[in-house]
Amino acid sequence: MIQFQNNEIIELPDITEITFNRVEKKYLKVVLLSTFINFFIGSLFFILFIEKIIAKKIPEYTGIFYFLFSCFVISIFIVLIVGFPKRKFAVRDKDVSYKSGLFIEKMVTVPFSRIQHIEIEEGVFSRLFKLAKISVFTAGDSSDDLEIKGITKEKALQIKEFISQKING
């Protein structure tokens, strides 16, 4: 850190030293359930596609198609399950961070002073488990801002309240 010699601060707060919290374990069920339903609808179309088109034109390949499709579905579920514990968040005094990703690990930090607005959202399945998603928006292209999915609704409200207080006070 030779570049920053001029600074009066010697020790900067280190992002690697804070403890991240995992999101609720229940949320895995929500993720699996919604993925399952999506795939269920998807597979109906896929089966229709195989039976109507593939089975008529190249019947010897139908088995391979089914095999590849099920491999794809299974691997998606494995990635979801194995990658789930990687979803972690942390709220510090002046910023909020979120980590996720199995093959591509990501970590975002948004300083409170740059937050434009905060949203809390409850999905259909999340509501069954009393879970919520909190999204934090900054200025500019908002596709890349921070989202914490799968925390309890109380926790989400608590975080929102905390951040709002910090911004206004």
């Binding site: 970590m107 975002v108 930090t109 300083p111």
Partner: peptide, 11 residues
């Protein structure tokens, strides 16, 4: 002027 910071690492 930075709004948020992200780290990204592939395997």
């Amino acid at each position: 002027k930075i709004q948020n910071i992200k780290l990204r690492q592939t395997i």
